[in-house]
Amino acid sequence: MKQTLKMATVALAMSTALFSTQAGAAGAEVFTPEQQARIGEIAADYLVAHPDVLIEVSKKLQARQQAMQQQTYVQSALKTHRLLMQLDGVPVKGPADSKVIVTEFFDYECIACSMMAPVMEKVVAANAGVRFAFRDWTIFAGRYPESQQASRRGLNIYRKLGADAYMAFHNGIYRTGHNEGKLTTEDIEKVATAAGAGPSSGDDDAAADQLIESNSSLAELLGLTGTPGIIVMPVENATAQNTTILPGVVSESVLQQAIERAAGNG
C-alpha cells in the first residue's frame, strides 16, 4: 500500500507540475493559494474514499515503467548481439543452425532460478529446433562458495561429456531444492556422478572461472540486475520487435511467446 501511495503521489505531482506550467504560460494565476490548498484536500479525501483509483494509477505507472525498462534492455541486447552469439565454452542445447537462441543468465544458489528451472526444462523439451545457451553468472558466490563450485563442475562436465550430461547436471542441481546457502559440496558431487562424471580434478577451473567472468561482464553490459535473466532473440536480423528480455521468473507461455516472436511467428 505504501508503494501504491508513493506512485499515486508521483502521478499527482506530475499533474500539478503540468498544471503549474500551463498556468504560467497563460500568464495568470488560476487559483489562489487558499483555493489550491482546498483542492488538494478534496483530492486527498477522494483518493482515501476511492482506493481503487490509487490501484489503477499504480498499475498504469508500473506498466509504463516496465515498458520503458524493456525497451532499455532490448536496445542493450541488440548492441551486444555479437557477444551473445559468441558461445565458445558456453553450454548450449539445440541445433547449431537454429534461427532462434534463448540465453539464460543464472546462479545455482538463486531461489528464483530454481523456480524458473522446471519451466525452462519444459520449454527446452518442447522446442527441439531452438538453441538454448546457459551462462553461469555467479552473483551469490561471495556469500555462498558452492555457487562458483557448482558452476565450475557444470562447465567442466559440458567440456568433457557434452550437452546431455550437462543438462542432467544442470537440472539435477535445481532438483535438489537446495539454494540460498543450502547447496552443499555433497549435493554437487552426487548430481555430477549421476550425470556420468568422474571425480572432480579441478584441472579446468581456471578456464571455467574465465568464462564465468566473461558472462558477468556481458550481463552488466545488458543492464541485468539479477538472476535469472533471459534473452530471446533471432540469431540473425535481430530487431526491437523480435527480441525479448525476461528479467526474472516467467511462465512457460510467456517464454514460448517470446520464442515465437523471435522466430517471426508472433
Rank of each mutant, 00 (worst) to 15 (best):
T4M: 15
T4L: 11
A13E: 09
A25R: 14
L47V: 15
P51L: 14
E56M: 02
V57A: 11
S58R: 15
S58Y: 15
A63T: 14
A67V: 09
Q71N: 15
T72P: 01
Q75P: 04
S76G: 02
L78N: 01
L78P: 06
L78R: 08
D97I: 06
S98H: 09
F106D: 03
F106H: 06
Y108S: 06
I111H: 07
A112T: 06
S114N: 12
M115P: 02
P118R: 12
V119F: 07
K122Y: 02
A125W: 06
A126H: 13
A128C: 05
V130A: 06
A133P: 02
F134Q: 05
R135V: 02
P145R: 04
G154P: 07
G162C: 10
A163G: 10
Y166K: 03
N171T: 14
G172K: 13
Y174A: 05
L183D: 13
T185C: 00
T185Q: 12
E189P: 04
K190V: 03
A195G: 08
G196W: 10
G196M: 09
A197M: 10
S201Y: 01
E213M: 07
N215Q: 06
S217R: 13
A219I: 05
E220V: 08
L221P: 01
G223V: 09
T227N: 12
P234Q: 05
N242K: 03
T243P: 04
E252M: 09
Q256E: 12
I259P: 00
E260A: 15
